[in-house]
C-alpha cells in the first residue's frame, strides 16, 4: 500500500463506521416501531435510539469500586471498534469493501467473535456476580452458534471451489457468485435451508430475544451490561447497532447480492445507478434484519441457556449439514440428463 491508498482506507473506514452507526440506529428504531405494531402498540419514534444514545453519552459514567478499571473501560471501545472493522470487509451494495482483497470470510468468522469476547471481558471485569453469570452464558452461547455458522460458510465455499472460482473464501467472490446460481431443485432447497440457519444464527450473534440469556434483564438484571452506565453503556449500544448492520450485510452478501440498477435500466457506474443500488441494498438489509431480528424477537420468549445450546448443536447443525449434503447431491445430479429439466418445468 502506498501513502494514497492508506489515506483512502482511513477516510473510507471513518465513512463506513459512520454509515454503520447511523443505519444501525435507524434500524434499531424501525425494529422497535415494527415490534410495537406487531404487539398492537404504537411504539416509540424511529429516531428514539438517537435520543437514547444522546442521553447515555450525557450521563454520569460510573466505574464500580471492585472492577478491573482499565479492562472495564476498554471493553466497550474494543466492541465498537471490532464491529466497525467487520464492515470494512463487507461489500455495502454497489460499494466494494474498503479493505478489498485483504480478508476473507474465515477472518469474518473470527472477527464476529471479538465483540462478544469484548462483552465477556467487560462482564468479568465489572466485578458483579450478575455480570459474571452473563459472561459465562455468553461464552457458552458463542460456542454453540459457531458450528452451524461454520457449516454454512463451508458449504458456500465448497460450492464455489467445485465451480473452479479463484479464492472461494473471499467475500467478493461469494458475493459475485450467489449460492443460488448453477443449481437444480435440490441445490435451491439446500441453499434455502442454509439461509434459514443463518437467519436463526443472527439473533444469537446479536444477543436478541429468544437468545438473549446473557443479557436477560428480568433474571440477571442486564447480565453482561449490569454494571455499565453512561458513556460506556452508550458505546456498547452503538456497537450493537453496528453489529446488527454487519450481520445483515453478511446475509445480504451471501444470499441476496443482486443490484437493481441493471433491472431498472440505469447505466452501470452512473450516479443514479449507484444511488439506486445503495437504496436497494438498504431495503434488502432492513428486510433481512426485519425477519431475523424483529419477527423472531417479537414472536418468541427467551430460551434457557441449555435450550439455546441444544437448538444450535442439534437441530440447526443437522439442518446446516443437511443443506450441505443437498448441495453436494445437487452438483452430482447435474450431470444426469433429466435432472436440470425439473426446474425448467416451472
Amino acid at each position: 500500500m502506498n501513502g494514497m491508498d492508506i489515506l483512502m482506507a482511513v477516510i473510507g473506514s471513518v465513512l463506513v463506521m459512520l454509515f454503520g452507526i447511523f443505519f444501525g440506529l435507524v434500524f434499531k428504531g424501525i425494529d422497535r416501531v415494527l415490534s410495537a405494531r406487531m404487539q398492537a402498540r404504537i411504539g416509540p419514534r424511529v429516531r428514539q435510539p438517537f435520543w437514547d444514545v444522546g442521553k447515555l453519552f450525557s450521563k454520569e459514567n460510573i466505574i464500580p469500586e471492585n472492577a478491573v478499571k482499565w479492562m472495564f473501560s476498554s471493553a466497550p471501545v474494543l466492541g465498537l471498534a471490532s464491529s466497525a472493522v467487520m464492515l470494512l470487509y463487507l461489500p455495502l451494495g454497489p460499494l466494494a469493501p474498503v479493505l478489498q482483497g485483504h480478508g476473507d470470510i474465515i477472518l469474518m468468522l473470527y472477527l464476529l467473535v471479538i465483540p462478544s469476547l469484548a462483552m465477556v471481558t467487560g462482564g468479568f471485569a465489572s466485578g458483579s456476580p450478575y455480570a459474571a453469570v452473563g459472561a459465562q452464558r455468553e461464552m457458552v452461547m458463542m460456542m454453540s452458534y459457531e458450528f452451524p455458522l461454520a457449516a454454512v460458510v463451508v458449504s458456500i465455499a465448497w460450492k464455489l471451489n467445485v465451480f473452479g472460482i479463484a479464492n472461494p473464501f473471499s467475500i467478493t467472490s461469494i458475493a459475485s457468485n450467489p449460492i443460488w446460481m448453477n443449481s437444480g431443485i435440490l441445490g435451491i432447497i439446500g441453499s434455502a435451508i442454509l439461509l434459514v440457519v443463518l437467519i436463526i444464527v443472527t439473533p444469537a450473534e446479536l444477543s436478541k430475544i429468544p437468545f438473549d440469556a446473557p443479557e436477560a434483564e428480568t433474571e440477571i438484571v442486564g447480565g453482561l451490561l449490569a454494571e455499565y452506565s453512561g458513556r460506556n453503556l452508550g458505546i456498547f449500544y452503538l456497537a450493537d447497532a453496528v453489529k446488527t448492520i454487519v450481520m445483515g450485510a453478511l446475509l445480504v452478501a451471501i444470499f441476496f447480492p443482486w443490484g437493481i440498477a441493471g433491472i431498472v435500466g440505469l447505466a452501470a457506474g452512473s450516479v443514479g445507478a449507484i444511488a439506486a443500488d445503495i437504496a436497494f441494498f438498504l431495503l434488502k438489509l432492513f428486510l433481512v434484519l426485519f425477519v431475523s431480528v424483529t419477527v423472531i424477537r417479537t414472536s418468541f420468549a427467551r430460551l434457557k441457556i441449555d435450550q439455546i445450546v441444544y437448538t444450535y448443536w442439534a437441530p440447526l447443525t443437522i439442518a446446516a449439514l443437511f443443506g450441505l449434503v443437498l448441495i453436494i447431491w445437487d452438483l452430482n445430479l447435474l450431470g444426469i440428463e433429466w435432472y436440470p429439466q425439473v426446474l425448467g418445468g416451472w
Binding site: 402498540r41 416509540p44 442486564g222 449490569a226 454494571e227 452506565s229 453503556l233
Partner: peptide, 13 residues
C-alpha cells in the same frame, strides 16, 4: 414506550 420510556433491569442503566 411511545414516550421512549423503557423498563430496565439494573439501576446503573
Amino acid at each position: 414506550e411511545r414516550f421512549g420510556i423503557k423498563l430496565v433491569g439494573s439501576p446503573r442503566h
